[in-house]
């Protein structure tokens, strides 16, 4: 069991280090012209993400049930609890605010 424990600690440390390096790495100096790429992307709408992400655990909430300020707090809470990406929660929150 001690060997497994050591492997697990090293694995967890490795995941944490990789996550820190990747998440902290800057993309400001990229040579890709982002606006050119965006033209060809099929971006999902916030409404579509709301339907997909929320329904993974519970029924998708009605936008009218909370005001904009409430949705910001709930959005931050759900981003962390459900491990949503920044893009997902930003778009979902924008949709909920626009539709309430």
């Amino acid at each position: 069991m001690k060997t497994i424990h050591k492997i697990l600690i090293k694995g967890a440390t490795l995941i944490a280090v990789v996550a820190i390096v990747v998440s902290c790495s800057s993309t400001k100096d990229t040579y890709v012209n982002a606006t050119d790429v965006e033209e060809f992307k099929m971006e999902k709408s916030g409404a579509q993400m709301w339907g997909e992400a929320c329904n993974r655990c519970h029924l998708a909430p009605s936008p009218a049930d909370y005001n904009d300020t409430d949705w910001e707090t709930i959005g931050l809470h759900m981003r962390i609890r459900a491990n949503l990406t920044e893009k997902e929660i930003t778009k979902i929150e924008a949709f909920l605010k626009s539709a309430n």
Partner: peptide, 11 residues
Amino acid sequence: MYVLNKNMTVR
């Protein structure tokens, strides 16, 4: 909980 950056939160 504190959001460190777009990919990482510490709690």
